[in-house]
Structures are given as C-alpha cells and as structure tokens.
Simulated scan of single mutants.
Amino acid sequence: MAFVYKDGVKVGATGRPLRDFAVPPTLSSHGPARIIAMCNQKGGVGKTTTTISLAASLAEYGRKVLAVDFDPQGALSAGLGVPTHDVPTVYDLLRGIEKDASKVIQHTSVPGLDVMPANIDLSAAEVHLINEVAREQILAGILRQVRNDYDVIFIDCQPSLGLLTVNALTAAHGVLIPLECEFFALRGVALLIETIDKVRDRLNPAIELDGIVATMFDPRTLHSREVIDRVVETFGDKVLDTVIGRTVKFPDASVAGQPITQFAPEHAAAHAYRQLARELIERGAVA
C-alpha cells in the first residue's frame, strides 16, 4: 500500500494515519451469515476481483464464506475455477427449476470458500421474474436456506441497477462498493447510494452501507490521489482505510482460476486483501 509521512506520521492513500488491523481470533461456531452485496453499476471497477480475493482472505482467517455469482457474465465462477455449464446454477433457483439451494453450491480450491455459480442463462432472469409476486425478494428466500451454514455471504452483482441488483440489495444486510480511482467511476456512486436509499425505504429497512473500497489505485498519478481525496471528503469514514493498488497479477490470477491470495500469496495485492478482511472484521461488517 502506498504511504507518505506527514508530520512524522505514516499516512495512507486516504490521508489517514496507517493502522495495522489485528489478525482476528478463530470462531468457535459458524453462522448465521451476514449478507453483503458487492455493488457498482459501472463495470470494470474491480468488483468481482474484490469479491473473490476478499472472500478467499476471510476463508484464510477461518470464516466460512459463500460467494454468489449474480452476474450473467459468470466472471466470479470462472475466477474461482468452478464449472458453470451442465450444472445447476443460481438461475435455476430463481426460476424454481431447482428448489434446494444447497444442491447448487460448489466447493472451491480454497478451504472454507464455496460458490453459487452463474452463467449466461442468468441474463434471462429479469424477463422471467418481472411478473412474479414479490419478485424483489426471491434471492432473499433462496439465501435463507443456507444462511446458517456460513459466516458471510457475498453477492457479486452485475454492473447495472436492474431487478437482479435490487434482489441482491433486498437480500443484503450491507453493501460494499468497490470504486475505481477514476473520475467517471466516482460520478456513478451518488446514483448507487440513491438506489440503496430507495431499497431501504421500500424493501429492506435494515440495509446499510458497509463501506467504499478504493481499487486500481496508482500512487504515481495525481488523478488517482485526487479521486481518493474527493471520495474521503464526500463519504468520510465510510471509505475504508485499505486501498487496493493496480497490478497485472489480477488478470493472471483470473486466468488461473484462483484468488490472488492463492495465486501470488506474498504479493502486495494479496496482503492488501487480507488487510481489507481484517478491517471489515474490526468494523463489525463480518463476524
């Protein structure tokens, strides 16, 4: 993570003094899970990468984690090396073709991390769900079946604010927003916050913003630093201290079907995601 010294104090990219988050104690029992939606309607902001790497980091710390691929592109499933064709997927659960959520879940190469996969079939889900009763709450009902088996459930949302994303927000207790350190990514956050507020008012009073994670940070550019300054100025403590830097290791890990923590465990990016996991535990967003 990039840092500078200000008045003799080591300061991180967010302008705050750098903190070292303690390794969390092991859990004596598991569940029920806190459900977190990974959401940003802009694509290419590191959302799926963050879901994969954060989930794997939490699993390293002994948490039982379920990652729900809720994007028709199926990038999360591919990034964790699980099959998505000729197997039941989250689409089958939404349609009621498969009733048992546990039959859709697959184990990954990371101990403690499971996946509910998706493929291109999910792109038809909104058309099928539009006439369903309580259509915004279908995913919530599915996740209730398996919630007691996990400590945290991440929902990797598609880059839009359509019915699938509203389903994710209705099912979630919290929202984590990965935000690329780029001006056009910043512009869309206000619209996303507005959507979260509407879901809170109409569908899910308990939902809260767990935090904003700055991704693809390049300390060499003034633009990256200015974007972080603007985000911290606007959202204050909702901006997490941990900042994820830009690196070519992420696409390499995706091709290998592994999280960065497994593909390059000693890389700075792997350490950053472990720190992000510790920070979320310390903030109480994760048990």
Score class of each variant (00 low, 15 high):
174 G>I: 06
258 Q>W: 00
198 K>D: 15
243 V>D: 07
259 P>I: 01
136 E>G: 09
238 K>V: 05
202 R>K: 10
211 G>H: 09
187 R>M: 12
80 L>A: 11
70 F>S: 04
217 F>H: 13
178 P>R: 01
30 H>N: 08
165 T>C: 00
46 G>Y: 02
172 A>Y: 01
200 R>M: 06
230 R>D: 12
86 D>L: 14
189 V>A: 04
284 G>H: 11
192 L>H: 03
17 P>A: 10
228 I>Q: 07
169 L>D: 09
59 A>H: 09
51 T>V: 07
187 R>H: 10
143 L>W: 08
145 Q>S: 10
238 K>N: 11
85 H>R: 15
13 A>Q: 07
157 C>N: 14
47 K>S: 04
239 V>L: 14
208 E>I: 05
201 D>K: 13
181 C>N: 04
209 L>G: 05
88 P>W: 14
63 R>P: 00
199 V>H: 08
258 Q>E: 15
82 V>W: 04
171 A>G: 08
232 V>H: 07
183 F>D: 00
153 I>E: 07
112 G>T: 02
145 Q>N: 12
191 L>R: 12
202 R>D: 10
97 I>F: 14
4 V>R: 14
19 R>A: 12
228 I>W: 06
53 S>Y: 01
139 L>R: 12
186 L>F: 15
131 N>Y: 12
229 D>C: 03
152 V>W: 13
287 A>I: 05
52 I>A: 12
71 D>H: 11
41 Q>N: 05
221 T>R: 09
252 D>K: 13
185 A>V: 04
48 T>D: 02
223 H>F: 14
80 L>F: 09
156 D>T: 03
242 T>C: 10
99 K>M: 05
83 P>L: 11
184 F>G: 00
169 L>P: 02
284 G>R: 08
71 D>M: 12
46 G>Q: 01
227 V>R: 06
193 I>P: 03
278 R>M: 12
113 L>C: 03
52 I>K: 03
207 I>V: 14
186 L>I: 06
178 P>Y: 01
112 G>I: 02
203 L>N: 13
249 K>W: 00
131 N>S: 15
187 R>V: 14
92 D>M: 09
262 Q>A: 12
132 E>N: 07
275 Q>N: 14
3 F>T: 15
250 F>E: 00
3 F>K: 08
247 T>S: 15
184 F>L: 14
216 M>C: 05
167 N>C: 07
28 S>K: 13
